[in-house]
Amino acid sequence: MSDTSVTTRRPLADRTLPGPQERGRATFLHSLHAEWIKLRTMRSTLWVALGTLVAGVGLAALNGASAGGEHATLAPADQAVFDPLGTALKGYMLAQVTLALLGGLVITAEYGSRTIVPTLTAVPHRSRVLAAKGAVLAVAAYAVGVATMLAGFAAGQSALAGAGAPHVQLSDPESLRAVFGGALYLTLAALLGLAVGTLVRSTTATVTTMFATLLIVPAFGPALPGPLADWAAVYWPPTAGGQIVTGYRDPALLDPWPGLGVLALCVAVLLTAAFLTFRRRDA
């Protein structure tokens, strides 16, 4: 056999191993891109966004028309505390639920379909995965929130003006605070849903928890025993945060930004718990 027919193989140890770039190690930007694709292609995302917009605008228009028609018959004391902002932006009450459910679905849908396993296989850094989910969700929720609050404001104020009731303009500082602060409130509601969904890992349990937290407790809070009812009326996070969309200042309640701060603190605590749980619990 001639020497030219012999193929020389280098020992494995002598071969050049691929560097981090060649191995295609996942970065936070990769995680963001992946989570954006998941959110954009999830069938429920479009329906939730449209439902949020329709519910917010519809409730704002109905509430504005109803309150505007009754304004002339109110007692002078009630007319003095009439709140055109809070009346027109009542649609946030439904919008918060839909966006909170979207936040829960961002994580529970993956647990339900078991796609969470390949996700964590591709990106072993679990904190990076959850942070990317939260960042993408926050941007999407804020965009939907701004659109909902702006459209709801326009519909509600138009209904009030048509009924001859007091109304405000978007250029007013209070209006800008209510609209864009309201969008922040809706973003926090979505992140609250993500935190709860991460902790319970069940879509059904997340839906139940969000309805109870955002709607049932605020509605039935006054029926609680005295001191507990007073605490819930002031400090229950969704109730406190909801002051951001009001114009009338009730001295017994928190001001808009401190109220929103209470909700933000609650969401931060639950997200911290969600991060710790997500890192330690099996998929």
Rank of each mutant, 00 (worst) to 15 (best):
V6E: 14
V6T: 13
V6N: 11
T8Q: 13
R10A: 12
L12K: 10
L12E: 13
A13Y: 06
L17D: 12
P18L: 11
R23N: 07
A26W: 04
L32G: 06
T41F: 04
R43C: 04
R43N: 07
S44P: 05
S44H: 05
W47N: 09
V48M: 08
G56V: 00
V57G: 01
A60M: 02
G64W: 00
S66H: 09
S66Y: 05
E70M: 10
A72H: 14
L74A: 08
A77Q: 13
A88S: 15
T98L: 15
T98M: 12
I107C: 07
I107K: 04
I107L: 14
T121N: 07
V123C: 08
S127V: 14
V129S: 08
L130F: 10
A131R: 10
A141Y: 02
Y142H: 12
V144Q: 03
L150M: 12
L150C: 09
A151G: 04
G152T: 00
A154R: 01
S158D: 03
L160Q: 00
A161S: 07
H167K: 00
D172Q: 09
L176D: 01
L188K: 02
A190R: 07
A195E: 07
T204Q: 12
T206F: 05
T209P: 01
L214S: 03
V217C: 06
F220D: 02
G221F: 08
P225Q: 12
G226M: 08
L228V: 15
A229V: 12
A232T: 15
V234C: 04
W236D: 09
P238T: 14
Q243W: 01
I244M: 11
R249S: 14
D250P: 08
P251M: 10
D255G: 14
P258E: 05
G259M: 07
G259I: 09
L260I: 09
V267M: 07
A268P: 03
A268C: 08
T272F: 14
A273N: 07
F275V: 06
